[in-house]
């Protein structure tokens, strides 16, 4: 009965001759955290800003809470955190949050929210004198102060120190717990893995893979170990089930991919014994979203 939080079908956005978003299709469910993961310039911000009603799509369909993004009735229901700026430089931290809170019918208490985000000491500090991380946290506070159903967070942890990053992650977790739908963009795979129910990996304006973090990374696992460099892997490959892969990268570090289970582990250790090699630091790991991205695009995420 409920429409999804965000539904994007075949979205296209061009700037002059450049196509920033190139037929992107994405669905963000209600009450879930959806991460849009991709490198800089992949079209993340363009996509989000079309959903926020700031930009107009050149083609395709976008529905936010079932409505056209520019409709005024969405404004109270949707919280927005811009990638940067948006606050008058001379405005004091608490003044800004109180001002924004007065635009809503049932806002959160501004002072309590500032305390929650560790900004209590800076309530009287003008925006321009806040550190980058403090500015980000104030923008995050302004995005949620109106008790929205859906929040868009554009690179919420860019420039944050690790502590502030975890505070932000905790807040996103709390929002999700309270039933708020969250759509965030990031180029940190650990952020997407940690926060998101659903991850859409985008590159060059298209979704190249999507799913839960586990479904994206979990099917294939890796076996890693260290040994002396230059081992001949052909023989090992012959012994492994079809579809497995083995490589040495960098020298002395071996990665075996395939159906990693007891059988494969046994084959590898037996091969090591026959080669007279002791495998050090042998472990089984899941692939990361970073590996997935590299595989899909042939490029690094950052």
């Amino acid at each position: 009965m409920d429409s999804p939080a965000v539904e994007i079908i075949d979205l296209v956005k061009r700037y002059g001759g450049t196509t920033a978003v190139d037929g992107l299709t994405l669905r963000a469910e209600r009450g879930a955290v959806t991460a849009v993961l991709g490198p800089n310039g992949a079209g993340k911000t363009s996509t989000v800003e079309i959903c926020e009603g700031f930009r107009v799509a050149d083609a395709g369909t976008v529905r936010v809470l079932g409505l056209a993004p520019a409709l005024p009735e969405l404004r109270p229901r949707v919280g927005v955190m811009l990638q940067a700026g948006g606050v008058p430089p001379a405005m004091r931290c608490a003044e800004w949050l109180r001002l924004v809170s007065r635009f809503y019918a049932r806002p959160l208490d501004a002072d309590a929210l500032l305390a929650r985000l560790g900004l209590t000491e800076h309530v009287r500090t003008p925006y321009r004198r806040l550190s980058g991380g403090q500015q980000q946290r104030l923008s995050l506070a302004a995005a949620v102060v109106g008790r929205p159903e859906l929040v868009f967070l554009d690179e919420p942890t860019a420039g944050l120190d690790p502590q502030a990053r975890h505070a932000c992650w905790d807040l996103v977790g709390e929002l999700r717990g309270a039933g708020v739908s969250v759509v965030l963009t990031t180029h940190h795979m650990d952020e997407a893995e940690r926060l998101a129910d659903h991850v859409a990996i985008i590159d060059r304006g298209r979704v190249v893979a999507e799913g839960s973090p586990a479904s994206l990374t979990g099917a294939e696992r890796q076996l890693r170990f260290r040994a002396r460099p230059g081992l001949a892997l052909e023989e090992l490959l012959n012994a492994l089930p079809a579809g497995s892969a083995a490589k040495e990268s960098p020298a002395g570090h071996y990665i075996i991919e395939g159906l990693v289970g007891p059988e494969l582990l046994g084959t590898v250790t037996a091969w090591c014994a026959s080669e007279g090699v002791t495998a050090d630091d042998l472990r089984i790991e899941r692939r990361t979203l970073e590996d997935v991205f590299l595989e899909l695009t042939g490029r690094e995420l950052r």
Partner: peptide
């Protein structure tokens, strides 16, 4: 620490107040 209730309760303030 103050507990904050993030449960959605959206709504615009009256026009004159904004």
């Amino acid at each position: 620490m103050t507990t904050l209730d993030f449960t959605p309760a959206p709504g615009a303030a009256p026009f004159t107040r904004m």
